[in-house]
């Protein structure tokens, strides 16, 4: 039970840091921390073999979303020029 509480605590702290941070680029590592902690908590909540697959799917999706946001932020308006 202590590992689930640890994952939830890390996720809550990182979510608070994401919202309170002012710089946009400094928010993204904390979003990654949130997604890592939630992917760990999903596996620890459900004791089932399929939970690993679901957590891997969430991990892939969250990383893809974060990469898309960072890529658009870095080279946003340059494509139209």
């Amino acid at each position: 039970m202590i590992e689930l509480l640890l994952c939830a605590g890390i996720a809550g702290y990182a979510a608070l840091r994401v919202v309170l941070e002012r710089n946009t680029m400094r928010k993204l590592p904390f979003l990654n921390v949130v997604s890592f902690a939630v992917a760990g908590a999903i596996v620890l909540i459900v004791p089932h073999p399929l939970a690993v697959l679901a957590a891997a799917a969430y991990f892939v999706g969250s990383t893809l979303e974060s990469n898309a946001i960072a890529s658009t932020w870095a080279g946003g308006g340059k494509k139209d020029e």
Partner: peptide, 13 residues
């Protein structure tokens, strides 16, 4: 969009 990612992470558990 980044805050929306936090919301999606809260729905999943």
């Amino acid at each position: 969009l980044i805050s929306l990612g936090v919301l999606v992470a809260g729905v999943m558990p």
